[in-house]
Simulated assay, not measured.
Amino acid sequence: MIINDEPENTMGTYTTAELSVDVTGEKLELLTLLQDQRNLLKISARNLSDEQARKQSTVSTLTIGALIKHLANGEENAATIITERDENAEFDMSRAATEYELVEGETLAGWLEAYDRNAARFDRVIADAESLDEVIPQPTAPWAPEREWSTIRTMILHLLRETSHHCGHADIIREALDGQTTMGAISEGQDWADAEWMQ
């Protein structure tokens, strides 16, 4: 992936953030920025073995594999919340026990595939939504015991924030593993990347 510096790029994305759905206007802007962050997250996982994807390289217990898994589940959950619109939904706490780890039998490749699949489903749900102003009931959870309602727009922004947040985690974890940085990775082969200020 390289920085998208083509003249038609007006959203300031770092990657070529192609969508699997045909949308325009605000949907296009929001989903393109979200896809850019998804791409950046996946760059942090490139060429890693399952062992490396499970490795805790900082004082945090987070790993790159766990972050991919967590965000893949987040995409799936968000799509389901919108399509099912269950006013009695509760967060499934049984999933929390292994949410942040690759357990026996799980692979980085498997979760990267799930991430792409779930992201495409989420984008399709957004493309099919009549309006981003539609209000959706959110599941209750121990940290949110009262039922909350969010617009689809707010749900996209929440997912964008969550993905961006964990992109930073993944970048630090990867740099501690082998020195790769996301900005270094996306600038490979670019003439300007050899400039003194990039060193």
Rank of each mutant, 00 (worst) to 15 (best):
Thr13Tyr: 02
Glu134Met: 12
Ala72Ile: 11
Gly105Leu: 06
Ile2Phe: 02
Pro7Phe: 03
Asp5Arg: 15
Lys55Glu: 15
Met1Phe: 06
Ser20Trp: 00
Arg95Ile: 06
Ala170Gln: 03
Ala109Val: 10
Leu160Val: 02
Phe91Lys: 12
Arg95Phe: 07
Trp149Lys: 15
Leu157Trp: 04
Ala144Ile: 03
Glu76Phe: 11
Asp194Ala: 13
Asp116Pro: 00
Glu29Val: 10
Glu130Thr: 13
Met155Thr: 08
Ser164Asp: 01
Met183Ser: 11
Ser57Glu: 11
Asp50Lys: 03
Ile186Gly: 00
Gln56Met: 15
Leu41Asn: 06
Asn47Ser: 15
Thr98Gln: 10
Leu34Ile: 11
Asp50Trp: 06
Asn47Met: 08
Thr10Ser: 09
Glu75Cys: 09
Asp50Leu: 07
Ala97Tyr: 05
Gln190Phe: 01
Leu62Arg: 12
Gln37Glu: 14
Leu19Tyr: 04
Tyr100Ser: 12
Asn9Asp: 04
Thr163Ala: 00
Ser150Glu: 09
Ala170Ser: 13
Glu196Leu: 07
Gly184Asn: 08
Gly25Asn: 06
Ile172Trp: 00
Asn118Thr: 07
Leu160Trp: 04
Val59His: 06
Gly184Arg: 06
Trp149Asn: 14
Arg117Val: 04
Trp143Glu: 09
Ala144Ser: 14
Asp36Cys: 01
His166Asn: 04
Val125Asn: 02
Thr98Ser: 14
His166Leu: 06
Trp143Ile: 06
Leu157Thr: 13
Gly74Cys: 05
Leu34Ser: 02
Thr63Gln: 02
Ile2Pro: 04
Gln138Asn: 07
Trp197Cys: 01
Lys42Met: 15
Trp192Ala: 08
Ser60Glu: 09
Ile82Arg: 05
Ala120Asp: 15
Ile2Cys: 00
Ile156Trp: 05
Thr151Asp: 08
Ser44His: 00
Asn39Gln: 12
Thr13Ile: 02
Val59Trp: 01
Ala78Met: 14
Asp133Pro: 00
Thr151Ile: 07
Leu132Cys: 04
Leu30Ala: 09
Trp149Gln: 13
Val59Asn: 08
Ala144Leu: 08
Ala141Phe: 05
Ile126Asp: 05
Gln199Ser: 11
Ile126Ser: 03
Ser94Leu: 11
Glu29Ile: 04
Glu113Pro: 00
Glu101Leu: 11
Glu148Asn: 08
Glu99Pro: 00
Ala97Ile: 09
Ala114Leu: 06
Asp36Ser: 01
Glu51Tyr: 04
Ala195Gly: 10
Thr58Lys: 09
Leu62Val: 00
Asp178Ile: 07
Met155Gly: 07
Leu40Tyr: 03
Leu40Glu: 07
Gly74Leu: 07
Glu75His: 13
Ala97Phe: 10
Arg38Phe: 05
Phe122Asp: 01
Glu175His: 14
Ala185Asp: 03
Val21Gln: 07
Phe91Trp: 15
Gly110Arg: 05
Glu18Lys: 12
Glu51Cys: 04
Gln138Val: 01
Ala127Arg: 10
Met11Trp: 02
Ala176Arg: 12
Asp133Ser: 15
Arg174Asp: 03
Thr58Val: 13
